[in-house]
Design a protein around this nucleic acid. Sequence first.
DNA 1: CGTGATACGTTGCAGATCGCCACAAATCGA
DNA 2: TCGATTTGTGGCGATCTGCAACGTATCACG
Lengths: 396, 396
Amino acid sequence: MQGSSHDDVRRHNLSVVLRLVHRSGAASRSQLTRVTGLNRSTIAALVAELVERGLVVESEPSSTNQVGRPSPIVSVSEQVVALAVNPEIDAVTIGIVGLDGQVHRRVRYPTDQSPSVLEAVNIAAAVIDGMRGELEARFKVVGIGVAVPGLVRAHDGLVRHAPHLGWIDEPLAEMLEAATGYPVLAANDASLGALAERFFGAGKGITDLIYLNGGASGIGGGMIVGGAPAGGIAGYAGEFGHTRVSDSERVDSAGIRGTLEAEVTRRELLEVLGLDGADTDELEQALLASTSPVVRAEVNRQIDHLAVALAGAINILNPQLVVLGGFLAALLAVDADRLRSAVAKHSLDAAFGTVRLSAAELGSNLLMIGAAELAFEGLLDDPAGPPAAGAGAVSA
Amino acid sequence: MQGSSHDDVRRHNLSVVLRLVHRSGAASRSQLTRVTGLNRSTIAALVAELVERGLVVESEPSSTNQVGRPSPIVSVSEQVVALAVNPEIDAVTIGIVGLDGQVHRRVRYPTDQSPSVLEAVNIAAAVIDGMRGELEARFKVVGIGVAVPGLVRAHDGLVRHAPHLGWIDEPLAEMLEAATGYPVLAANDASLGALAERFFGAGKGITDLIYLNGGASGIGGGMIVGGAPAGGIAGYAGEFGHTRVSDSERVDSAGIRGTLEAEVTRRELLEVLGLDGADTDELEQALLASTSPVVRAEVNRQIDHLAVALAGAINILNPQLVVLGGFLAALLAVDADRLRSAVAKHSLDAAFGTVRLSAAELGSNLLMIGAAELAFEGLLDDPAGPPAAGAGAVSA
DNA sequence: CGTGATACGTTGCAGATCGCCACAAATCGA
DNA sequence: TCGATTTGTGGCGATCTGCAACGTATCACG
């Protein structure tokens, strides 16, 4: 319940303009006036301040075949970047992501075994140190966003529980902040995936969506509710994988019986295909190519269970879009009709009638973009706030 | 993506102040300055404008044993009211609800059979016409809020499907608006229940909560996500009753198998108790008094199924609070421990650890308050907007 | 009962931001 | 080349909030 004053207006308007060019890409000043409803002169002043701060760039109007004086194009500065970090079972991935959503660089550092928190932090810090020259010369770094495959407490980046990494109550954000000097934010990987798909992938402009990702280690998810990422009271929201879908005795990674994650697994798909290891694309190709009735039966079984979980979430959340990533997208690709009709069977007509199912679009850059988005959030909220300093700026 | 200007600042600040006295009750001007962070002089001006518009009243400072000049108490005007309408299977209830959340009057108009839309509208309009003298003399009416037991399309108040009333695609809001001359908004009853409990009941000040209500005709629900009521893309969100909780063949009112609403019913509780009809309080008393093992077994069965649905919702939404209303509150009262431990078994530790289960507090006024809240929303968003006119003001 | 301390209301003024308006500039089409 | 159209630019006015100084009501203490 905060009152607002003039500086808040300015802050808000700067934020709106920067968000627009961040999310919708380059736009002319006249487009900005139309979308924001602000006055031409106001937009001019706002853009000038953003240019001043090095956040956006104005460039020559492109030749649109329109009458009237051409309007300069406003686009995001290529210098402003965030660092993205994603620890996994077998690697730590670090990326440099521009404010325009472009992934400038991505380094995957493989590990022999699942890294401890300290190892993950050290790897990330070392890779970032290696990039430091480039970062300081070419970029302004806003901060670091970390996508963690587990439950992360929102406000301080404490990893409550990352089962597949074996992390429990680890102060990841704090450690990485101390090791690099950059401000660090962390969140659940699937929640960030939802964010990324929402702004840069299948869910552009959509205010209510559910994202479910199927990975080697289980099923996670995230949601956008009413235009805002829904994290719940502590940032643990989106755990669709532990939704009950059957009365069976199968147990998931959290020890809960009959859940989506217990019934719908990547491992079992690989087994019936006789594959040992395969990335998501290969898995999808193999599933599409297979004519084996055994494979088909397993796919059907998993689709039917997935449908129950999706229908439940659709009934509760009434989303506009359900985005499926990882091997769940493969299931959709193999038999979208079966999935759709199974979802229809378990959901209310009205809610089902307003929803679309679709596959994720961002592929391997998904988590880099999502994690960077997390780091950009502060800047987007208050472009005139603490300057997006050069490397090594923020104190511990 | 709207820009804001100075009138927006004023609007916002008026809105903040009015919301504060609406939700937290009377407050001194000095309290308002502290909570809003605004300047003393600004609060003085804002309150003066709200007084001018007849929305709030300033009264003599109460004798708080504090040094310093006493600060006038700002409270909501008793004249500002909304009308609440709630059509049910066997009655239409109409109420006058003050901006302070107080229910000034409630009229329950019983019907022989489930009313058609036209009947419900006529009854409501007739009752309101009956009150007209009083309304015009004593009150300023903001509008009408309708709590509908079914799916309601948010933006125009079209009742998509109210199964128990047998309504399909009925333009309820439009009809009632034409019949009464007041602006009408409609929404799902359980969603409004969530809203009411959040502001005036068990969920005061909580930003993430789930509300489930068990009624004679089924189970509905609503949620507050990140501080805002979550309606989904079309206002159909919150249908927890159709969550799958078992593989059984039982079918719910929407024809879906094995759902919460199919397994957990008020009717079956009454049956094992040997009761014919009973209101919620009587049902709870009878359950608490009963020592029959048959009753106990049925209660346990329902609790266990309820727990599955709650756990699923908790995993997905990570709420701070789950509020149970109607006969679900009775189940909680009979064996809270069993429900809690069953929920724990099906949910993630981290999400379960942050959630509380509690019974609804508002009882029979719940839907009146919720529906009124819906009608107040426009005024709270923009206190300086179109005047909360006396009766008969707003054109059709 | 009077005095000082404290907290708050009140008033006038300054600062900041946005909208409006008039004019200039750039483009298209004839 | 000229008019129509669209947009940038710069000055002006309106509005709202914050600030500071002063007035006022209460409490505590002697």
